[in-house]
Design a protein around this nucleic acid. Structure first.
Lengths: 233, 233
DNA sequence: AAACGACAGATGTCTGACATCTGACAAACT
DNA sequence: AGTTTGTCAGATGTCAGACATCTGTCGTTT
C-alpha cells in the first residue's frame, strides 16, 4: 500500500504541518536533528525532504540559521498552494478560483490558436468533436472525457506557447477527477458538444475574437456546472 | 564570489546538460555514482541535486531502473522552461510568449478585480499612478518602475485569486529586468501613465469588460515596446 | 518452452563524522 | 564606557562507507 518513499512521507507530513498553521510564514521549522528524531528517520532523509520543499519555494534554507517558511505567494507549486487554499471550508472557493484561472489560460490560448492553427490541427479538433458525439450516443463516459481533454490539449498545442502549456499542466491533473464526475450527466455532455463545435468553427474561421468568446462561453458553462454540482454535494 | 552550495552547482550543471540536448526527454541521465565522480562530489550531494530537479518535475527517478528526463511540458518550473526555450536563437520568441502569458493573466485578473476591488485598494492604485507621474517628472526611473510594479501587484491582490498570484510570481522575477530597460524611455513612460490611468478609471467604475480592455491595451503597448526594443538590439 | 534463481546495477536509507556559517555572549583591549 | 575580539552553541553543508531493496537480464532447471 504505502508505495511512497520515506522522503516523500516526511515531506508530506512536514507540508501538512505547515499548511495546518503550525509553522506560519516567516517562522522557522524544527532543525534537521529534531525532525529526524520525530519521524524516526535519518538526517539525510529529512534533508532530502527539505530539498523537495525548498525546490518548490515552500521553504527557504539559510545556512547556519535555520529553515524558514515562505509566504504562500512565493510558493511555486500549484498543488501545494491548492492544498493550502482548500484548508477548512475554503474548498469550494478554491475550486472556483481554479476555474477562473483555467478560463484565463484557455481563452487566451484559444485566441492565440486562432491566429496560428494549422489545417492538420483543425482536422484533429474536428475528429475530437466527432469522438465526443460518438461517445455521447454510446454512453461511454471514459471516451467522452478522453476526447474532451484531447480537444483542449490540441488547442493548447496550437497556441504555440510553451509557457501556457507548462502552467496548464498541473491544472490538468487537478481538474481531471472533477471533470469525470460532471461529464457523467448527459445534459452536460450535450452542452459541451455544442460549445466545442462552436469553438471549432471559430478556429476554422481563424477569428481570434470569436474563438475567444466561444471558449469563454464554454468556461462559463463549466463554472455554472461546477456550482450546481458543488451545491448539491 | 561563488556563494552557491555544491548541490546548486551540480543541479545547475546537470540542468544545463539536459537543456543542451545531451539528455533528451525520455532518456536516462547518468547514475548517481557516475555523476558524483564527474563532479567530484559525494553521492549524497548528487542525490540532493537530483531531488531539486525531481521536485520541479524535470526528472523522474525510478527505483532500481534509473533517472529519466521528463518532456518539457511536464516541467513545473517556469524558469527552467524559460532557460530551455531561450536556447539558441529562440530568445526573442520566448520573450514574446512570456508577454502573451502575462497578458492572459493580467487581463484576466483585471477583469476579476473590477468585480471585487475595495475602495481602499482603489485609493492605493490612484496613489501608484500619482507616484508614476511624480517619478516621470523627476526623471526617477527606479521609483517609476517601483510604482509600476506596485500598481500591477495591487490589481493582482484585488482579484482575490491566489492561484493567479502564484503563477504570476515567477513571471514577475523574469520580466523585472526588461521592464527597467524599457522604462528608461520617456515616451514609454508617458504611454504607461496614460494606460494606467485608464485602467484605474475602469476599475473605479467597476466595469469588468472595460477594465479588461484597458489592461489589454496596456499589454499590447508593452508588447510593441518590447518588439521595437528587441529589434534594435 | 516456461519457470525459477542468481546476479549486476540502480536507487533508498542509515550511521557517524567533520566542515563551515551564524548569532550571541563574554572577555580583552583601547 | 565603548569597541573589538574570541569563543561557543547550534544550525546547515558535505563527505565516506555500508547495507537494503527494487528491476531487468540471463542463464539454469524443470
Amino acid at each position: 500500500m504505502a508505495r511512497k518513499s520515506l522522503v516523500g512521507v516526511v515531506a508530506d507530513e512536514l507540508l501538512d504541518r505547515i499548511i495546518s498553521g503550525e509553522f506560519p510564514p516567516g517562522s522557522s521549522v524544527p532543525g534537521e536533528l529534531e525532525l529526524s528524531a520525530r519521524h524516526d528517520v535519518s538526517r539525510m532523509t529529512v534533508r532530502e525532504a527539505m530539498k523537495t520543499l525548498e525546490a518548490q519555494r515552500i521553504l527557504s534554507v539559510e545556512r547556519g540559521r535555520g529553515t524558514f517558511v515562505n509566504p504562500l505567494n512565493r510558493w511555486s507549486s500549484l498543488e501545494a498552494v491548492l492544498r493550502a487554499a482548500s484548508e477548512g471550508q475554503n474548498g469550494p472557493a478554491a475550486a472556483v478560483q481554479l476555474i477562473e484561472l483555467r478560463r484565463m489560460l484557455e481563452t487566451g490560448a484559444c485566441e492565440l490558436a486562432a491566429q496560428r492553427i494549422t489545417d492538420t490541427e483543425l482536422d484533429s479538433l474536428r475528429d475530437c468533436v466527432a469522438d465526443m458525439r460518438k461517445a455521447h450516443h454510446g454512453n461511454d463516459v471514459v471516451s467522452f472525457v478522453a476526447a474532451d481533454l484531447a480537444f483542449h490539449d490540441q488547442i493548447l498545442q496550437a497556441s504555440e506557447n510553451v509557457f501556457v502549456a507548462v502552467l496548464f499542466e498541473p491544472l490538468h491533473r487537478v481538474l481531471e477527477q472533477g471533470r469525470t464526475e460532471t461529464s457523467k450527466v448527459p445534459d452536460i455532455q450535450e452542452h459541451a458538444i455544442g460549445h466545442h463545435q462552436k469553438i471549432y468553427e471559430a478556429l476554422a474561421a481563424r477569428d481570434p475574437q470569436q474563438a475567444r468568446n466561444a471558449m469563454d462561453a464554454h468556461m462559463q458553462q463549466t463554472l455554472s456546472d461546477l456550482r450546481s454540482y458543488v451545491l448539491e454535494a
